[in-house]
Design a protein around this nucleic acid. Structure first.
Length: 507
RNA sequence: GCGGGUGUAGCUCAAUGGUAGAGCGUCAGCCUUCCAAGCUGAAUGUUGACGGUUCGAGUCCGUUCACCCGCUCCA
């Protein structure tokens, strides 16, 4: 578990997930659909357990704040589809659905239909100069660069002009962007909108267009006023939400790591701007400790600050971004993001004020001050967290029959315990079934009497069940059962009457 | 989006252009007193899909879909 490198391939894990009912390809019998996955019976339990652990530890029993009191966090479940204007305010769409051209050099982004191109007439292979429509400065710059290229000033009659959108791939490769001096920095025009589009109502026109949310966060900002008005919360406080988000990724890849439909667990923590840095540090520590508490403690976990040049558009100012990253088999030796803690400033509330024309400022009685709270956002991936738990639990062991076992934290294990009669006779099944019926009222537990005891243990190893209780002939005489521990393979005996309490102590 | 690779039973893999198979797993029965034991039997395939060449295609060709690897992208 403390290996510095992963010792198994992703294929091994994907095969186990399929074999044991954790994760299947979505609509597999129709050939699947790129970027979509279904959770099987065990995967559903695992993901729900991770979600419930987060909700319990962040909302029901939130962490203790700097003042020694538990912080205040309330839950929310907002709609997946919201007014399309939300995504304009959030910065997720600029020009709606227009093909965009990026400059790799300057990181500028242009609407493809707003770019025009210059070239020397008759020179089909020469460099092409792009400029911005209706922008005299940009046109002049392009003409100057063209003149420099052909080493003389050209008359209007010697220059060809055409829309950028009519350029071929080869022509784009020899095109100079509006703000650079070299060719090949411009990408081809692309639909930059990663949001899934749909239509609200029967008529499918632009007026009825709507989008599946690309993140759960905005639903929280939209309800900031509602929560403040109805829940008697005072800044600082948080709003938490778990839910699906959708991104039409160009390249879904790496199992469920980058899928087009995924789940997030997000907290938006609202505080005074003066306190933002303190709360940022607080949430970095809290979130780090939380992942560690679930068993993510190996060298495969990395907690790190973002470099300044990789900050998202909403986090340019402030305390920056802190990442919880995991070394997945497909990222090794690199890491992939599990959670980001970002200081979003007052960007989101400010933008929603602008776009909605509704006041979102908060009046702070204690400070006697009205202000837009700053936001610290611990945003975790539930799907990615589930994947990290699967990777972390996957433990090859050539010594045992299954060759591998899933060392889940018992809190996350899809099956908490299994109850076996050692042999399928002599009254053992009856005793085992009775214990099973008692325990199943509190936990997901399984009863299995088929085939050899070794085979049953092996199955439970792959399912990641932490304990197996076996009823044998001694049970019939002295009322004790064997506990078989998944990780150590050790066995111990306890009274059958104390099994429930024994489990309760550990779950 | 580009380039390369792969696709046969649940899994791992066979099958010279000529009857689609094995092992493991799964299921049923027997057996079995602690780590995938044994015996008997069973189910499971439009060979990813569509089209073409051929007397005949898992095999050759085209298209498409999915997955893997490398770029690109990841606001």
């Amino acid at each position: 578990m403390t290996d510095t490198t992963t010792t198994f391939s992703m294929d091994d894990l994907v095969a186990l997930c399929k074999r044991r009912g954790f994760i299947y390809p979505a609509s597999e019998i129709y050939g699947g659909l790129n970027g979509f996955w279904d959770y099987g019976p065990l995967g559903t339990e695992l993901k729900n357990n991770l979600r419930d652990a987060w909700w319990h530890d962040m909302v029901r029993c939130p962490p203790v704040g700097p003042d020694g009191e538990p912080v205040s966090i309330v839950g929310l479940d907002s709609s997946i589809i919201q007014n399309p204007r939300v995504w304009e305010a959030s910065g997720h769409v600029g020009g709606f659905n227009d093909p965009m051209v990026d400059c790799r050099e300057t990181k500028s982004r242009y609407r493809a239909d707003h770019l025009l191109c210059l070239g020397a007439k008759g020179d089909d292979a020469g460099q092409i100069y792009a400029y911005i429509e209706n922008d005299d400065e940009s046109l002049a710059a392009a003409r100057k660069k063209l003149g420099k290229y052909v080493k003389r000033d050209l008359d209007d009659s010697e220059i060809d002009t055409c829309p950028f959108t009519e350029l071929s791939t080869d022509e784009i490769a020899v095109t100079v962007g509006p703000h650079v001096k070299t060719v090949g920095t411009l990408t081809e025009p692309r639909q930059f909108n990663l949001m899934f589009k749909t239509f609200v109502g029967a008529v499918q026109d632009d007026d009825s267009a709507a989008y599946l949310r690309p993140e759960t966060a905005q639903g929280i900002f939209l309800n900031f006023n509602n929560v403040v008005d109805t829940m008697r919360v005072k800044v600082p406080f948080g709003i938490a939400q778990v839910g699906k988000a959708f991104r039409n990724e160009v390249t879904p890849r790496n199992f469920i790591f980058r899928s087009r439909e995924f789940e997030q667990m997000e907290i938006e923590w609202f505080c005074h701007g003066d306190d933002a840095e303190q709360w940022f540090e607080f949430w970095c520590d809290v979130r780090r400790a939380w992942w560690e508490s679930l068993g993510l403690t190996s060298d495969n976990v990395l907690m790190r600050r973002h470099d300044a040049d990789e900050l998202a558009h909403y986090a340019k100012e402030g305390c920056g971004t802190f990442d919880v990253e995991y070394r997945f088999p497909f990222t090794a030796p690199g890491f992939g993001e599990l959670e980001g803690v970002a200081h979003r400033g007052d960007y989101d509330l400010r933008r929603h004020e602008e776009f909605s024309k509704k006041k979102l400022a908060y009046f702070d009685q204690a400070r006697n001050e009205r202000y837009l709270p700053h936001v610290i956002e611990p945003s975790a991936g539930l799907s990615r967290g589930t994947l990290a738990m699967l990777c972390e639990a996957y433990t090859p062991d050539p010594e045992r029959a299954s060759k591998v076992y899933m060392a889940f934290n018992p809190r996350l294990a899809p099956i908490k315990a299994a109850i076996f009669p050692l042999v399928n006779k002599d009254g053992m099944p009856e005793v085992a079934k009775k214990l099973h019926e008692q325990l199943r009222r509190r936990w997901p537990v399984q009863y299995d009497a088929k085939q050899s005891i070794g085979k049953r243990y092996a199955r439970m190893d792959e399912a990641g069940c932490p304990w197996c209780f076996t009823i044998d002939s001694d049970t019939l005489s002295d009322q004790t059962v064997t506990i078989r521990h998944r990780d150590s393979l050790e066995q111990e005996r306890i009274g059958i009457d104390s099994v429930e309490a024994w489990l309760a102590e550990r779950l």
